[in-house]
Simulated scan of single mutants.
Amino acid sequence: MTNAISFITIDKHNQVPLYFQVKESILSAIRSGKFLPGDKLPTEEELCKEFGISRPVVRQAYSELTAEHIIERKRGHGSYVKQMDIANMNFHHLVNFEEEMKILGKKPGTQLIRAEVVPYDTDIYQSLDMEKEDPCFMIVRVRYADCMPFSLISNYISLARFPGLDRFDFAVESLYRTLEGHYHTKIYKANRTMHSQIIDPTAANLLRVEKQTAAHIVTSVDFDCLDKPVGMSVEVFPGETHEFSFTVYRR
């Protein structure tokens, strides 16, 4: 067993799909610094032999990591951990904020603005498959990178599905880690959309930017491994300090 393979673990008795276990194990190794940008990953053949799994299982895990810009595949050379950059991190990578800043080499910070139950909103309730009588909990925070405002994020989540979530202090707690540790719910995927608009005056003050400037608004709906919606977020990025780039392929 090579050192690289020793960073990857799977459990065939677990109901979580094997390809997802491979993918999450690699992501965990990247987040913890075991795999660094530029490191070569085990080949499909090595993983199949080590864990007794089929090549399509490994191929799906690697394909999703490639599509999410986490690894890159070099023809004839193998798969490597990709260098991540701030322009693409939030849109392409499914990591919590602390992990995002750690990968980027920046010091994270959080200021809690509001945490409260909010009235019924059609878009939010439909996106989260919530019943009209279900209480919706909203968490609003300013994110900081090296003590500078990075973004303003509003999270929406059902207290019917996650009772007691409103008792946690999200000025210091990670929402992702709280869901995983206390509710055994892990985010598997997110559907994200982005649009641009003139920044809201309140957001401008919190993010310390001029009013009437452009902002990027990223809306995300997160799902668990059973494809059930977990939460929704709306994140505001100042247009003057953020850009998003994309690679597209001809089909």
Rank of each mutant, 00 (worst) to 15 (best):
P56I: 05
A115G: 03
H93S: 12
V218Y: 03
N88F: 03
R75M: 10
E180Y: 12
L179Y: 07
T2M: 07
I187H: 02
R31H: 11
G181R: 15
F51R: 12
F162Q: 00
I53L: 08
T202C: 06
E46W: 10
Y80R: 02
E46Q: 11
I26T: 08
P108V: 01
V117I: 14
T9Y: 10
K34Q: 15
D129F: 09
A203V: 05
E45N: 10
R114I: 03
L179N: 03
Y125K: 13
R192A: 01
K228H: 08
F170G: 02
L47D: 04
C136K: 06
G239A: 11
R141G: 10
D169R: 06
C48M: 13
L206W: 13
K211F: 09
E50D: 11
T66A: 10
Y80D: 10
Y144S: 03
L179Q: 08
L94F: 02
S6D: 13
R143W: 05
D227A: 13
L27R: 10
P201K: 14
V118Y: 07
A67K: 14
T247R: 14
N96M: 04
V248R: 11
S32W: 01
G38T: 06
R167S: 07
S151N: 13
V236F: 02
T66I: 05
S127Q: 04
Y188E: 01
F223R: 10
S63N: 14
F35C: 04
G38W: 01
H216F: 14
K23N: 02
S127W: 07
H77V: 09
V172T: 13
D169Q: 04
P42L: 03
A87H: 15
Y120T: 04
S63V: 04
S79A: 14
G38V: 01
I139D: 01
K23M: 14
R250A: 07
T2D: 11
F91P: 07
R143I: 01
L27I: 15
D39N: 12
R141K: 15
H182Q: 11
A61E: 03
V221G: 09
E100I: 02
Q212G: 05
I86R: 15
E240I: 08
K12C: 04
V209M: 02
F223D: 00
P119C: 01
Y80L: 09
G52C: 07
V142S: 05
K74V: 14
S245N: 10
E240C: 12
N155H: 15
V172F: 00
A215H: 06
I124E: 08
M194C: 12
F246S: 00
L175H: 05
F20K: 11
V142P: 06
L207K: 13
L94G: 06
I26Y: 00
P149T: 04
N90R: 15
D123T: 10
A160K: 14
I153P: 05
R161C: 08
D222C: 07
E100A: 13
L179C: 03
T202A: 14
